[in-house]
Amino acid sequence: MASQGLEKKHSIQDMIAQSRNKKGKKFIEKCMPIILVITALISVLTTIGIVMTLIFETFEFFQRVSITDYLFGTEWLPFSGSEPLYGVLPLILGTLKVSVIAACVAVPLGIAVAIYLSEYASDKTRRIIKPILEVLAGVPTIVYGFFALTFVTPILQELIPSLKIFNALSPGIVVGIMILPMIASLSEDAMSSVPNSIREGALALGATKLEVSLKVVLPAALSGIIASVVLAVSRAIGETMIVSLAGGATPTFDMNVTGSIQTMTAYIVQVSSGDAGYGTTIYYSIYAVGFTLFVFTLLMNLLAQFISKRFREEY
């Protein structure tokens, strides 16, 4: 009986044994991991490429301009024919002006939206509002730039007559609108992950929703919220099109926000749109500025990662 069963059951197994293309299969099994590692290495190569590109070209730049002049100079006049000056501080200051204004708009608003969505809104409201915020986050920056230049600036000029067409205020506000969804949704994630049992504990003691939100949930989610703000500010620092369109092209070293400014990114765009020949000092200067920008954003990203890892609440 046993041997009869054996005979019967080997028909499909025989077919399998015959049809199996062992060599081809084995070859694929061996090759695929290698191919996949190569694709994974592309992302590493990208980083290496970025760092190397920036370092080499910046090195070339510092052959021509002294590092101390670059880092501590307060005048950025690369196009001045007789005696160009490459002091990066005005560009950094311009970037910071825009970023600080953006943060002033986006941080309170973003956190308020996050509190509303996480603590007050019903599920249904949340399901409607979150996709709209996603749309807001998906609007291309060129559209925001156009909006800043043609809508926000004229309105601000009505309110502040001394405001120039190109200024720090208008792009700052619009960059704030741009990074608002990011702060709102990341902070909301952090707040929603605070377990309900903690909320219920406070509510059962007779605390109001506001007290629960501000004194229980907010502190518990603080690391996530701060990380989201840092990430958003880093995004603001790297933002290009809004400041290129509405910020102007005048690097200044003062605290004025109503006049024309220039950010690091806007300078790179200005040079790229013009005809700075390959190999000129101006050409290399965009890499030096790019490198400075890269260092700023990298540090902020690492800081955000550090905050969210180091202070992560374990529930």
Partner: peptide, 16 residues
Amino acid sequence: GPRIHGIKNKKILDEI
């Protein structure tokens, strides 16, 4: 199972 082991014939597959 049959497919990953290289059996592609539709008739045989139906039977299996």
